[in-house]
């Protein structure tokens, strides 16, 4: 018999997991890039990798305190955004897409190669960088919570930390997008030549947007490594595409969309994988092995997202009115 309680409680845990928070924040960064400014950044995984490695390497190799490690990660992603943006932001949108997808892969391969093994840990990655964060934990040791949401002090701390960053980032994004700055940014998405003709420095605004969304991706990369180790294989191109899926699910030019989109994505993923694993175990699908069942969840999530995009293309929080004018 299938243990439905266990499946549902595992799925419910994903609602507030730090991974969900990390994906939500990375998707919020993409919302700034793609949803508001119209920049096709396909290298969000690269920004996340910079956050993860920037933080971990600063802590492990250089012994920096937490705040300095965070600043190193942010600084690295600002430099990365400048390197990507300076040659491409004057060109058509698709050039940025090509450059970002390649640059993110280059970063991942640099982190994977054996040449820098002492610093990056190559393919096996890095761990043991969590001491600083754990030391900042104000929660006394013990186990807290109810039902599926029962965690120890460190697990609660990283959840609180992660979601606090997400909420602050969402409030910040909300406030800039309703300001005149946001108006220029949305104007650039519609037609950058028109905005240029009105005396706005479009190149500078696009750069600001690229840096801001990239920094969000970097912070997401740091939240992402709190419950796990830093492993280069996590930063493949598929990570960027999952984040795009979350963004489109929630609504590209919205604040709540990326956050709720991330929750739905991870709850669904967990539900499907739990259900498939147990259904195969119980012999419901005799033609399928456990390994196949593990892969099937991505197919099912893909189908669920396709259905959403077909029947609600503006996403959950998107404005239906906008779609009637899409060219």
């Amino acid at each position: 018999m299938i243990d439905w309680i266990q499946i549902f409680s595992n799925a419910a845990q994903e609602l507030i997991s730090p991974t969900t928070a990390a994906y939500a924040l990375a998707a919020l960064g993409l919302a700034i890039h793609f949803g508001y400014t119209g920049l096709l950044n396909f290298g969000q995984a690269g920004f996340m990798a910079l956050g993860a490695y920037g933080f971990a390497i600063s802590t492990l190799t250089f012994g920096f305190p937490v705040w300095a490690s965070v600043l190193v990660g942010i600084g690295a992603s600002v430099v990365f955004a400048l390197i990507l943006g300076i040659p491409t932001l004057r060109l058509r949108a698709d050039y940025l897409a090509i450059v970002t997808i390649a640059a993110a892969e280059i970063l991942r391969l640099i982190f994977t190669t054996n040449t820098f093994d002492d610093v990056t840990g190559s393919a096996s990655g890095l761990q043991g960088y969590k001491g600083g964060i754990a030391a900042l934990n104000p929660i006394p040791p013990g186990t807290y919570g109810f039902g599926p949401f029962t965690y120890n002090a460190y697990d609660w701390w990283i959840r609180i930390l992660g979601w606090t960053v997400v909420i602050l980032a969402a409030l910040f994004t909300w406030s800039i997008m309703r300001s005149p700055w946001g108006r220029v940014i949305k104007g650039i998405r519609e037609d950058e030549d028109a905005v240029r003709a009105l005396g706005k420095n479009v190149y500078s605004y696009k750069m600001q947007s690229l840096i801001l969304g990239g920094v969000f991706g970097t912070l997401a990369g740091m939240i992402f490594i709190l419950p796990r180790a830093v492993v280069p294989a996590n930063y493949q191109t598929s990570l960027t595409f999952f984040i795009y899926a979350i963004l489109l699910l929630g609504g590209a030019a919205t604040i709540l969309g990326p956050i709720v989109g991330s929750m739905i994505f991870w709850v669904l993923l967990s539900f499907f994988s739990g259900f498939m694993a147990r259904a195969v175990e119980a012999g419901w699908f005799p033609f399928m092995t456990q390994v196949q069942a593990g892969q099937l969840r991505f197919i099912l999530v893909g189908i669920a997202i396709m259905l959403l995009v077909v029947f609600r293309p503006q996403g959950i929080f998107g404005n239906k009115k906008e779609l009637s004018f899409v060219r």
């Binding site: 949305k186 104007g187 998405r189 519609e190 030549d193 028109a194 003709a197 005396g199 004018f325």
Partner: peptide, 13 residues
Amino acid sequence: IRTFQLTKALGLL
């Protein structure tokens, strides 16, 4: 200040 031959109204604003 200029305008364009193909009008550039910012549609979704």
